[in-house]
Design a protein around this nucleic acid. Structure first.
Lengths: 241, 241
DNA sequence: CTCTGTGAAAACATTCACAGCG
DNA sequence: CGCTGTGAATGTTTTCACAGAG
């Protein structure tokens, strides 16, 4: 028992957190929040793993990367673990994002309620097309000109940028976002984005995901099915720096 | 030299293709197509890797999984490799997809031109809300009722389903798609989808990607930066079965 | 000399299996 | 008992480094 202490005195130091583990952390948090809402007070690594298609050992290993949260014989206290995970993942702070590109994807992201509900506020939208300036998208946001990006990012306290422009302009948008002071970028353009050391970047590439799907089907038919990957379903991995 | 032969006689059999390698294959194909258009005739693993933030050894290993495509001393013949990769990835056949869910994300996907250009045709859109039935989305597609899903999938020769509904209904939509006969599913709903053996599934989870981004920033500040992952940018990995 | 294909080594990630707490 | 935390074992992916082709 360690009840009050949030992170535990001796967090297994820092460093070297496997990226796949972090993605799963996000899944744990989602599942735990849902169980918390359902009134569950404790949950075992086995139960948690079962819901997400993971082994119990995997769940325990992942959580143990950040401290000792479990109670032997009992499992994990849901509320406690939710609070810890939120802090670890930076979900205890306010994230403000801007979307660059008011095309199909940009507009969909601005209107994607889940972001707001999960604590990622979209505070501005920009587009290079002057014809779109002033146009309302989502709930009450108006498209602003690229020339305003730096000042708006500063004035609105925006710390994340979301790139939803065509591949041709994606790198220069990234440069502008970094110059404006964002700490991280979520990239939806189908190309690699380079940013300087210290800026976080994660990419989501729809085409790669679709092609991965096509490959599985095409290759599964022509060749032998890959059996290795039977157990847990595994999410299509985007790219992060 | 093996010039004409497309796949080479002895493809290193089948089986056991690492998933990360398949994602990169998609990147190679994109980069190669762009170089082909630019008139380049050959490319070395080093040049290809450089463009994509990968090592030359990685590129060679990935390609070697499927055959011997390179010409020692010369590099890879661009046109030849594009053709081989297209076949390997199933890009030489016609893919027809339907989108289920005509909300923000569903509509954005229907209008996402890149899918069509890359050979993934969206042939139908469905939504459970009867009020949306008949509404036009994208270029000339009309929203259809869920009750028509099975017959439309059959009639239109649809082999892929794209889930763009809220998490609550995602699993039952997946079941309906599989029952209707699709071979694979691209899932945008924030939850795990289970499908029977033999059906391919890839998931894209925006929230996980955003949280991965937030984690990198929050953890980088509070702790020591993870140094390991310096080199190539790495895409945010979705989930695939 | 350039550049591939590939065994062997290293790094990384998952699973096993069990000591020990409640 | 039930269930965590964790070393040790196993499996997977990446990198190294070099023989050999052109």
């Amino acid at each position: 028992m360690h009840g009050v202490t949030p992170y535990h005195g001796g967090v297994p130091s820092r460093r070297n957190i496997p990226k796949p583990a972090v993605r799963r952390l996000s899944l744990y948090l989602r599942e735990l929040a849902s169980r918390q809402e359902a009134g569950e007070e404790t949950v075992s690594s086995k139960a948690l793993g079962r819901s997400l298609g993971l082994t119990d050992a995997q769940v325990r290993k992942d959580l143990a990367l950040f401290g000792q949260f479990g109670h032997p014989g009992r499992g994990y206290a849901v509320a406690e673990l939710v609070a810890s995970l939120r802090r670890i993942m930076g979900r205890d702070r306010l994230w403000r994002a801007c979307v660059v590109g008011a095309g199909n994807i940009g507009r969909a992201l601005v209107s994607y309620d889940r972001f707001r509900r999960e604590g990622f506020q979209i505070a501005a939208v920009f587009d290079a097309d002057p014809a779109l300036a002033g146009r309302e998208v989502g709930s009450g946001l108006r498209v602003q000109r690229m020339s305003e990006l730096a000042s708006v990012v500063a004035a609105e306290g925006i710390n994340l940028g979301i790139i939803a422009v065509p591949r041709e302009t994606a790198q220069q948008v990234a440069d502008a976002l970094v110059a404006a002071g964002v700490q991280g970028i979520l990239n939806f353009a189908p190309r690699r984005i380079e940013v300087r050391e210290g800026i976080a970047i994660v990419s989501v590439d729809f085409t790669v995901s679709l092609e991965l799907l096509a490959f599985q089907i095409a290759f599964g038919e022509s060749g032998v099915l890959d059996p290795g990957n039977d157990g847990p379903e595994d999410a299509d991995s985007p790219s992060d720096e």
